[in-house]
Amino acid sequence: MTDALLVESLVKRYGTVQALRGIDLQVRPGEIFGFLGPNGAGKSTTIRIVLDLIRPTAGRVSVFGVDANHDSVRARRQIGYLQSDPELPPGLSAAEVFDYFAAVRGGPLDRAYLDDLIERLDLDTSRNVKTLSRGNRQKVGLVLALMFKPPLVILDEPTTGLDPLVQEEVERILREVAAEGRTVFFSSHILAEVETICSRASIVRAGEIVDVFDLAEQRRLAPRLVDVTFVAPPPPDAFATLPEGITITSRGQRTISFRTADGIDWLVKQIAQHEVSDLSVRQPSLEELFVGYYRGDDEEDA
């Protein structure tokens, strides 16, 4: 099956500044793919090359097999795009913006779907877009990206400026888009957002992909974090020797936190030898799993 988005060895230089250092991405049809990275990592640059707004120094991008730079009109016909902090034609209401781009783009428009999106995002389409708040402009941009039912939806920081209820609705809409077999590619620097809705994600840092991971697999293999509060402080020699795969991440007077990749059965039995007042077992968040990448970035920035 042809990839929804294929990015091969993408390099972008601005003079002596190398914004992208050989990005490779493969996004499959029907998946929600997260493109994670701190600000300035190269997410928007990659997306802008996909949209042919800027041209790569080297490398190739294709959208459903169509070269995104040499046959860009055909490639963009497959794409709905939300830019980070969308800017809309001034002097128009949101409804006029939708009509205008429908006319520019040509082709059929599913009015019922458009109305449904407007209603679900609770968008007032009568107001001039110039007077809209950041969040409402974001909603207009989202509708614009989705209204033509494109096979590939590219969203650059889609939930920025949206209140939590609308964010949840956006997540529901994106899941529905993927359920229809369409593809969502979205960039974010918010790990929790990617964790919630993406099936796969990649991390970009300083213009390079540092990891691509399957989130379901990642969750399955992820270590468990066990936080225990004892009624009385356990003896100092308790948990002094631990089998391989279990580590103590913090120890207080009555509390101990463990990290276990394997051996949860052994740990539970050991804990049960003491009187426990509280116990929690959880998987680490993506943030905890991948904070290392960011820390590395912070160190470079520093």
Binding site: R76, I79, P86
Partner: peptide, 13 residues
């Protein structure tokens, strides 16, 4: 203004 990006994201040359 940033509006050119919105226009050029559409399938027009």
């Amino acid at each position: 203004r940033g509006t050119l990006e919105t226009t050029l994201a559409q399938p027009i040359s």
